[in-house]
Amino acid sequence: MRFFTSENQRLATEIIGRYPKARSATIPLLHLAQEQHGWISDDAMIEVGRLVDATPAEVKGTATFYEMFKFAPVGKYLINICGTMSCQLLGADHLMHHAETKLGVVAGGTTEDGLFTLEHAECQAACTEAPTLQVNYRHQYRVTTESFDQLVDDLAAGNLDGEIPPHGTLGRVRQAIPADKSVGAVPPTEVDGPPVWLAVEGAS
């Protein structure tokens, strides 16, 4: 029994084909695994390793470096509250405290109903809109305690299902390179001269 569904297996093959070396597809395939399963299991890392020609340990080595990969189930909604300077100056500590009280968990915890995981986060590149948070990495700007409560209630009621997919799903649209319009990836060892437009026009 393969880890990936047949559709994801097809996607995985397509993604690997875009890189001159399969190993470069490690992170995109881990994302695909997390999207399918909600978190990264050992089985997922073994399968990714098989596909990109790496050992399971090498894949785990890579995966554990990156904060977005989770190795245990998390809530349907991952709420990341930014605590870096611009947000801190505008009340992020207070917002985090409020969130912990509202959800009844400390940062890092998951609510008993499995709906919310709350985390501290670092700068979310929305500093002018501080304080900010992300729900499954979708930004919420200028958050107040009132708007936080409203957000949590809306999420719980399913009012935002159209905008915020469950944890693991990142882009709802993927790049798809049409075979007839693609140049195709070539291993670096198989290229031994400048590309054709340079060869003709003269190197810079």
Partner: peptide, 21 residues
């Protein structure tokens, strides 16, 4: 992609996901 705007210039652009670091 291949033969951009009908020229001999061809290049693929691959969108790659980071994962938080």
């Amino acid at each position: 992609g291949k033969n951009i705007l009908g020229s001999n210039f061809s290049v693929d652009i691959v969108l790659h996901w980071g994962a938080g670091a």
